[in-house]
């Protein structure tokens, strides 16, 4: 069985991002970049399936600029076998990414496609579902548990009221939630080994995909700031404020 794992290069989750001075876009120059945390969980899950002998090859892929090779190398250091960069300087939307991935699914014929449930920059939560539509594969989104039984994936999903379990015929798409697993750290020898693993480059044009955006970002702004509050000395003062000033209890 082959697993395809799309990953995204994003600003590190610990970094506070602000708008550019002219308000045209988020200011991301010179910020620390990482693999999107949800993608890291997807990579980890694929590697665990390989360690269990259920998956023979783990292929990681990203759609992005040259620098996104760093994130692919990180995934290779974690245990992926080879990597594909779909090289473009366009900021590709989920629909465009899903179309690139559909073409790679045709080339690579994976049995399982593991993605993160959302990227922490755009917060879209769309790409896996869109890939499902374009390939016709079933989807198990927001997965907190994944088991492979024969030619089916059993996915426990995190839904609003609790948990839901679905059974999907392979090939299938699974998007990871935070509780799917705890990703490992790459060891130094593995980081060195990853440098020699295969990393091939394609372009959207070669794949025959038009990735030009359908939406246009007009501006970004900071949300309204909350007024600084007061720190109270005891519970009595707090209850008094809530009753008489804020009138919420």
């Amino acid at each position: 069985m082959k697993a395809l794992v799309p990953v995204k290069r994003v600003v590190d989750y610990n970094v506070k991002v602000r708008p550019k001075v002219d308000g045209s876009a988020p200011e991301v120059n010179n910020l620390k970049m990482s693999i999107n945390p949800f993608c890291e969980i997807a990579v980890e899950e694929a590697i665990r399936l390989k360690e269990k002998g259920l998956v023979e090859e783990v292929v990681v892929v990203t759609v992005g600029p040259q620098q996104a090779q760093e994130q692919l190398r990180t995934a290779l250091a974690l245990g992926a076998d080879r990597a594909i960069l779909v090289l473009t300087d366009i900021l590709v939307e989920p629909l465009g990414v899903a179309k690139c991935l559909r073409e790679l699914c045709h080339r690579e014929t994976p049995d399982l496609i593991l993605l993160g449930k959302q990227a922490i920059d755009g917060d879209n939560n769309q790409t896996g579902q869109m890939l499902g539509a374009l390939t016709g594969f079933p989807q198990g989104t927001f997965a907190s548990e994944l088991t492979i039984e024969g030619n089916r994936a059993i996915v426990k999903r995190e839904v609003d009221g609790g948990l839901q379990t679905v059974s999907l015929k392979l090939p299938a798409i699974v998007t990871s939630d935070l509780r799917l697993n705890e990703p490992r750290y790459a060891s130094l020898p593995n980081i060195m080994k990853a440098k020699r693993k295969e990393l091939s480059i394609a372009t959207p044009e070669e794949l025959g995909v038009d990735v030009s955006p359908r939406t246009q970002l007009l501006s970004v702004k900071l949300p309204p700031e909350r007024k600084a509050g007061v720190v109270l000395s005891d519970v009595e003062a707090l209850v008094d404020k809530l009753k008489n000033e804020a009138k919420v209890i």
């Binding site: 506070k16 602000r18 917060d123 246009q216 970004v220």
Partner: peptide, 16 residues
């Protein structure tokens, strides 16, 4: 719509 964990609000337009 909020982006980057709600740290910014983006205004976007769609031609679809």
């Amino acid at each position: 719509r909020p982006i980057y964990a709600g740290s910014m609000i983006a205004t976007i337009t769609s031609g679809d």
